[in-house]
Amino acid sequence: MIKLASAVTPPLLVGATLASSVSVAQSVFWETVDQLWYVCQPDGTPEDMDRVTVSRLTVDGVLVDRMHIGRSGHGTGLCVERTAAGTYLWAGSMPNGGWATALARIPYAENGTADASDPSVVRTPRTGVYRVSAAIDPTRNHLVFRWQSNNVPSPSAVGGIDAYDLGLAATGMFSRVRSTNFEASGKTLQGFTSLGDRLYFLYGDQNIDNFLVTSVDWASGAVLQSQPVTAFPGIAYREPEGICVYEDTLAFGIAGRPDGVRQLNVARFPHPGTNPWVEISYDNVAYPPNSNNYKPQYRIDGDRVHLHFSVDKRDGTAWAQGEVLFTLPPRVRPNRTQRLVGVVGGGAVNGDTMAVRFEVAADGRVTIWDERSLIGWVGADVSFWVC
């Protein structure tokens, strides 16, 4: 279970500009294979013809491309299924009064269009329900479907949440693997997701200090924890919009609207605990490690990222100022340059200090900085930064 402590800084996205200028974001999803954000906005078309715009953003919030989806609904609960055959969006379908009553599974088309109510893409886990939305639990490979039995705003809504095998759901086969009901919350729902044995709900209203994330036990439906969120204070419009699984924790969106521009800000909750060491891709021909135990690796421990490596230069030349040893993956990059102290081989410094400085840049580059034209191995064994 994610411990819902106060959301940490640095944020994941700040002021990312979205493709549509019509409305703010309604849902957000992190796709871990291609390392892209997917953000869904309603596009201001008449009810029951509701078109949404899906923006794809880089890990740093740069707009890559977009897709327009007609007859979709309000844009809540967008999620992404990554397969060997391509990328598929799970979006709202068959809108009634501007809100979806079914789901659609749509191949993502760069700068393309689709009709979410075309029978070939419609997926119907339940009939006779209202204001539906979906999430994907990557730890269980489940499609999670929220539905209401009454067609009313979320504070008064009653209904249920069902989980299905994602692979079978993609083919239109829906056999529930678990289910829970919900009663009226009295709060404005702005998104939900599932991770393991817990459901997480995002609540709150525009420019009102009632932003809350609640953890619910799947088996019993009991509320386990509610955490007020104070991220991004003072931004214009400030409305919570969308929650999703981000790596092994949770990320949530906060819409902004400075001077009418539609922007999205994203923060995350702390990582839940210490993770295993993960090898980092690097040029092992140019920079051979001292042994297999000293290949470049990182480990997340709470909000700390630990770095461990010891490498040499195969060509025997001196380490250059600012030479890049390797590049860290996006999930462990700091938000500003971090300076780390490492060690060098004793023979390389001829009695001088064996300390050497490394820098970890916001784009993930790990570089060496030393004026002594060092020759020999260099390494970092206990260095860390706060992510």
Results as ranks from 00 to 15, higher is better:
114 A>E: 05
363 D>Y: 04
244 C>H: 04
148 Q>R: 13
58 T>K: 04
1 M>K: 14
50 D>K: 11
254 I>A: 10
205 D>P: 04
252 F>A: 06
277 W>E: 08
100 A>I: 01
375 I>W: 01
352 D>V: 07
159 G>E: 07
211 F>L: 11
38 Y>G: 03
271 H>K: 11
165 D>S: 12
294 Y>C: 10
292 N>D: 13
98 G>Q: 02
325 L>M: 07
215 S>K: 12
217 D>N: 15
199 L>M: 13
44 G>Q: 03
99 W>K: 15
263 Q>I: 07
66 R>I: 00
253 G>S: 01
110 E>I: 11
250 L>V: 03
43 D>K: 10
95 P>A: 06
372 R>Y: 04
293 N>K: 11
269 F>W: 06
327 T>D: 02
30 W>H: 05
253 G>K: 06
24 V>W: 07
290 N>S: 14
237 Y>A: 03
361 A>G: 01
348 A>G: 15
70 G>H: 13
15 G>D: 14
124 T>R: 15
151 N>A: 13
164 Y>G: 06
19 A>Y: 10
281 S>N: 12
106 I>W: 05
3 K>D: 11
44 G>R: 05
194 S>V: 04
373 S>A: 14
349 V>K: 06
229 V>P: 07
15 G>F: 02
179 S>E: 10
139 T>D: 13
387 C>T: 12
73 G>M: 04
304 R>Y: 06
108 Y>I: 00
151 N>D: 15
58 T>S: 15
247 E>K: 13
